[in-house]
């Protein structure tokens, strides 16, 4: 466990020693800021419209601002994740530094967990930026805190499982571009899988849409913590990390 933490710390430092971490944070801050602004603007316009029409329907900040914005973040994440994971293993394989890790008294699993934790922490830090924007809601309104926390948990879970998949893809190649592009394609596919559910109601359609990563996020965005979704994310994390250990092992034998 100690070794996992040592590797994790080193990886995090590497992210922050290069422009990757700052670049991604800036990119996310900009996009999220825009989406947040748009959601709040729509909320305000709708609110005044309602008042002018004389109807005083209570409008829910969580439903009108938090939920759509969080849904957006879950999609933005699909673009950020490949950029986090692409260097994880591919870079070390290219420069040969993987030889240091592989000849140190460290197990493959410790290496993988260390690197994956680092990626998760970086992703969490990036998501954390959005909390500044959401804090503004608390200044001027009274949104419900719990659903926001649950949707953050969902974002983190969704990110973690895609990061595990990305780690696996990065372990399969020594080319960072291939690793990044491959991860992006997989992320994109896992996102659009639930679109079939709209018109295909057969069992196959249901199964396919169940596999969609973003589909499982909808409940979290509503502030609903469903064990079905948590189990899905946890099993995908497990699968991704398991495949990475297998790929690490097979590389050694194929080399």
């Amino acid at each position: 466990m100690n070794l996992v933490w040592i590797i994790c710390k080193k990886e995090l430092k590497s992210y922050f020693a290069s422009p990757i971490a700052y670049g991604l944070m800036a990119f996310f801050a900009l996009i999220f800021g825009y989406f947040f602004y748009a959601a709040v603007a729509i909320f305000v316009v709708r609110g005044t419209e309602m008042q002018m029409m004389g109807r005083s329907m209570p409008m829910d900040l969580n439903e009108w601002v938090v939920r759509p914005v969080m849904m957006n973040v879950s999609v933005i994440g699909l673009f950020i994740i490949p950029m986090i994971t692409m260097r994880l293993f591919a870079e070390e394989k290219k420069t040969g530094t993987i030889e240091l890790l592989a000849t140190s008294p460290v197990t493959d699993l410790q290496i993988i967990l260390g690197k994956w934790f680092a990626a998760v922490l970086l992703y969490a830090a990036i998501l954390g930026i959005s909390a500044f924007d959401l804090a503004i809601l608390f200044l001027y309104g009274k949104p419900d805190g719990m659903p926001i926390l649950i949707s953050y948990l969902g974002l983190l879970l969704q990110g973690s499982c895609l990061l595990a998949v990305g780690a696996f893809i990065s372990n399969c190649t020594r080319n960072q571009i291939i690793a990044g592009a491959g991860t992006f394609v997989v992320c994109l596919l896992l996102w659009v899988l639930d679109w079939v559910a709209a018109y295909d109601t057969s069992t196959t359609g249901k199964v396919i849409s169940y596999l969609s990563v973003t589909g499982h996020f909808e409940n979290f965005a509503k502030g609903v913590l469903d064990s079905k979704d948590v189990v899905y994310y946890l099993s995908l994390i497990f699968l991704g990390l398991f495949l990475t250990t297998r790929s690490m092992e097979s590389l050694r034998w194929r080399a």
Partner: peptide
């Protein structure tokens, strides 16, 4: 080639 991390 010594396995060095240039950013360290």
């Amino acid at each position: 080639t010594p396995p060095l991390y240039p950013e360290m």
